[in-house]
């Protein structure tokens, strides 16, 4: 699958972070959508189902894990990559239990992020084929 066709949603309340990340991904041929909080993320998912959501765990309002849970309920095919800033891997592990594909700690390495996106999309494709 061409990177240009990847449907990615980036969710974080840190505007500067998420827009810069989006810009960098664009330079690599990926065109993500962005959301700055849980509510708009859910709205964006409802509007058009992404393949992968890169989701920050800590956000005001609806928390990342809650967003994850709700997305997994409504759109089980969507793969979620969690961003945890917390030193504890607990949020990450909890996220995995709730169905997240993987978790990453901030600050990110963009190449690793893209690799993980790719494997998430691969995994989703395989799961769909099997299902």
């Amino acid at each position: 699958m061409n990177k240009k066709d990847w449907k990615i949603l980036l969710v974080d309340d840190e505007h500067e972070f998420i827009t810069t990340l989006a810009e960098r991904l664009e330079l690599r041929g990926i065109t993500p959508r962005v959301a700055f909080d849980g509510e708009s993320a859910l709205a964006a998912v409802a509007q058009e189902e992404p393949q992968v959501i890169v989701l920050d765990v800590l956000m005001p309002g609806i928390k990342g894990l809650e967003v994850l849970e709700r997305v997994k309920r409504s759109n089980p095919r969507v793969q979620v990559l969690l961003l945890t800033g917390h030193g504890s891997t607990r949020d990450g592990i909890e996220g995995m239990r709730l169905g997240a594909f993987d978790y990453m700690m901030k600050p990110l390495n963009i190449d690793t992020l893209i690799e993980k996106m790719e494997s998430a999309i691969d995994y989703a494709g395989k799961a769909a084929n099997l299902g």
């Binding site: 500067e16 972070f17 810009e23 960098r24 800033g85 504890s88 901030k106 600050p107 990110l108 963009i110």
Partner: peptide, 24 residues
């Protein structure tokens, strides 16, 4: 832990911005 995490946010931004500048 909260503060340390907080510090991660500007770091993440610096990281992304610098990454972007490198890309450019």
């Amino acid at each position: 832990a909260g503060v340390a995490h907080e510090v991660n946010n500007p770091l993440a931004i610096i990281n992304e911005k610098t990454g972007l500048m490198k890309d450019i």
